[in-house]
Computed example of a mutant assay.
Amino acid sequence: MAKMDADRDGRISSTEWRLQSMPQANFEELDRDRDGTVTLRELATSPPAGLDASGDGKLSAREMTFGKNAPKVKAGAASERRETSNENE
């Protein structure tokens, strides 16, 4: 949230959301009270079903961006990349 909250007011405005190239439809799903901002409280509640691709009850940055269409990342992929890059050094 800190990265997205450019003015550090504890809320993500629609403008701040768009500056991160996030889909407006996802912002609207997260803005549960329809006040034009997404707060930490709104992010902490159970995520909308349309965004929680993994079904784990939490939203990752990938899910906030892509929702149910979030590309799946193979478990351990990051560590495999590190191991490969270390082998090449």
Rank of each mutant, 00 (worst) to 15 (best):
M1I: 01
K3L: 15
K3I: 11
D5L: 06
A6H: 13
R8S: 15
R8K: 08
I12W: 04
I12P: 01
I12A: 01
S13F: 13
S14T: 15
E16A: 01
W17P: 01
R18A: 11
R18P: 00
L19Y: 07
L19I: 13
L19Q: 14
L19H: 14
L19P: 00
Q20D: 07
S21K: 15
M22R: 11
P23Q: 05
Q24F: 11
Q24L: 10
Q24I: 11
A25Q: 13
A25S: 12
N26R: 13
E28A: 12
E28W: 05
E29D: 10
E29F: 00
L30N: 02
D31T: 03
D31E: 04
R32I: 07
R32E: 04
D33S: 06
D33R: 03
D35T: 06
D35Q: 07
G36S: 05
T37M: 08
T37Q: 11
V38R: 01
T39F: 01
T39H: 02
T39P: 00
T39V: 00
L40F: 05
E42D: 02
E42R: 02
A44R: 01
A44T: 01
A44S: 13
A44D: 01
T45E: 10
P47C: 06
P47V: 02
P47Q: 05
P48E: 06
G50A: 12
G50R: 15
G50T: 12
L51Q: 03
D52I: 04
D52P: 07
A53W: 06
S54V: 04
G55N: 03
D56Q: 08
D56Y: 08
G57C: 03
K58R: 13
K58C: 06
S60L: 04
S60M: 05
A61N: 08
A61Q: 08
R62I: 14
R62C: 15
R62W: 07
E63L: 04
M64N: 03
T65V: 12
T65E: 13
T65C: 12
F66T: 09
N69H: 09
N69V: 07
N69W: 11
A70G: 05
A70P: 10
A70C: 10
A70S: 09
A70I: 13
A70L: 11
P71S: 01
V73N: 07
V73Q: 10
V73W: 08
K74D: 13
A75D: 14
G76Y: 01
A77L: 11
A77K: 10
A77F: 10
A78H: 12
A78Y: 09
S79N: 11
E80W: 05
S85W: 09
N86Y: 08
E87K: 11
E87P: 05
N88D: 11
N88A: 14
E89G: 09
E89W: 07
